[in-house]
Amino acid sequence: MMVSKEAAVSDAGKPAKRPMSPRRKRYLTAIGIAALIGGIMGAWLQIDSPGSSPASLAPLSNSPLTPGFAIGASVLWVIGLIVSLFIYHRAIDDHEERAYLWAGLAAWYTFVLSAPTWWMLHRASLAPPADAILLFAGALVVNCIVWLWLKYR
């Protein structure tokens, strides 16, 4: 019986690749949608304000936006994120859910500690006005660090 070279290598070498489970497919779909939303928003922002700061910093700057982009990006953010998170939460296992919940709690504590502190310092003229996006970014960074640590340590 003739066996093709590819088949022989496949049989003798690594075991055949397992088919992707439905859970993993849902997981990758959720990540893909989130990445797509980010990509579309980033590209759209660059097209909409070509003279502004570099692409990586544009979403964090306080420069004015066109109403078209602001409405479109807001709708995309809310609807896209809800859809992505719905799929994500149906796809994750116990272990990742625990990482997600602790990361979310750590991010919330970061916000709870930093926002009122900054606001009070500003009222005493000891700090510039509180910046919502900086607070959001800080909480997000803490969220990512805790999630990665709990999932991959």
Binding site: R23, D94, H95, Y152, R153
Partner: peptide, 29 residues
């Protein structure tokens, strides 16, 4: 670990975390 993860329908990281005692599985798992 990946094979066991597939059989349990969880991630490989979950199997590794249970094996190394870093995570106690839920009752259903």
């Amino acid at each position: 670990q990946a094979e066991l993860a597939d059989r349990l329908d969880v991630s490989r990281q979950a199997v590794n975390a249970i094996e190394t005692g870093k995570y106690d599985p839920s009752l259903p798992l």
